[in-house]
Amino acid sequence: MDSVRKGEDSEEVEIDLGDSSDPEEFENEEEPQTLWKAQPSLEEEENIHTSTLVEISDTKPLITARDPRGINDCLKVTFEDVIAEPVSVRSGDRVWIWSHALFEVCRVWIYRVLSVLLAIPMSVLSGLLFAIINCFHIWMVSPCVQCVLIGTRWLQSFWSIMLQILVAPLLTSAGKCCGGLSVHLAKE
């Protein structure tokens, strides 16, 4: 077995594992260059920002566009959609401003609190449910359907032949007979 010997064509690489948060190290305010990460070329950098795989990924959560497919467009509710005063009946300006502010604050913070309490358990349950459904479909339903389709190829061929021999001529002749009929509507 060939083994790599020390001292033969070996290149020594220095890796700095120091803390990057030390302010005294970077006085000219340049970012440290990591030796283990290659810098992308100009083309790669453009492709990174324009690639749909990076923008919509199954493994990386989307922070800016959280509803990219517009599933919850019906939930875009504002204060004016819920509370509206007609011109004839108006409350004071301060009441309207405070109502608007409290509505927005309550809507945002109650949603945040409920999402903290419910998002993680619902995500786990949804992931578990979809994993079970996918596993069941991939390993049970699809093979059974394929077995049935393979076993009934002769029936599919037989049914196709019977339709072509018996039903197609009857429907073709009925279509030709009814094709000569026309309906004229006249007002009396």
Rank of each mutant, 00 (worst) to 15 (best):
N28M: 07
S10E: 13
R90F: 00
P23R: 02
S3F: 08
L17M: 10
I132V: 13
V183W: 09
T172Q: 06
F26M: 02
C106I: 12
R94F: 09
R112C: 02
R107C: 04
S21K: 08
V4F: 06
P121W: 03
V124D: 02
V82A: 07
D67R: 05
W139Q: 05
P40C: 06
E31C: 05
Q146D: 13
A84M: 03
E43Q: 10
C106D: 11
V13E: 04
T50E: 11
M162Y: 13
W109G: 01
I63V: 14
I71Y: 08
L170V: 13
W139K: 04
L163K: 15
C144I: 15
S115W: 12
L35C: 07
L171K: 05
I120K: 04
R107K: 15
N28Y: 11
W98K: 08
R66T: 14
A101S: 12
V113A: 11
G151A: 07
V108Y: 09
V116K: 06
V167P: 01
R5Y: 03
A131E: 09
R153F: 07
E85A: 11
W36I: 10
E55N: 08
A101L: 15
K6S: 06
G7C: 06
E188T: 04
R5L: 14
L117M: 11
I97H: 07
K187Q: 08
E30G: 00
R94S: 13
P169T: 01
I63C: 02
S88G: 05
D9M: 00
P169A: 05
S41D: 15
E55P: 00
A101M: 13
R90C: 01
E25A: 11
V183I: 15
H184V: 13
E46N: 06
L118D: 01
C74E: 14
I150G: 12
L117Y: 05
N72I: 08
K60T: 14
E45H: 10
I132G: 00
I15F: 07
V13P: 00
E44S: 05
V183A: 05
P169M: 00
K6W: 05
S123V: 02
Y111P: 00
W96D: 09
S115I: 09
C74H: 14
L166D: 01
R112G: 04
L170A: 03
T52E: 06
T50S: 15
T50W: 02
L75I: 00
G18N: 08
S160R: 15
L75Q: 09
F79G: 01
A168I: 05
T50H: 06
P121Y: 04
R153G: 03
P121Q: 01
L128V: 06
I120G: 01
A119H: 05
N28G: 08
K187E: 05
R90Y: 00
L102P: 00
Q33N: 12
L114E: 11
S160F: 03
V124G: 02
L117N: 01
W139G: 03
I56V: 13
T172F: 08
V124N: 00
S88H: 10
V108A: 15
V95F: 14
S142R: 15
I48F: 15
H100D: 09
L53Q: 11
E85C: 08
L163S: 10
T152P: 03
I56A: 03
I56S: 10
K76H: 09
S126K: 11
P86R: 03
E188Y: 12
S41P: 01
L62Q: 15
W98I: 14
T59W: 08
S88F: 07
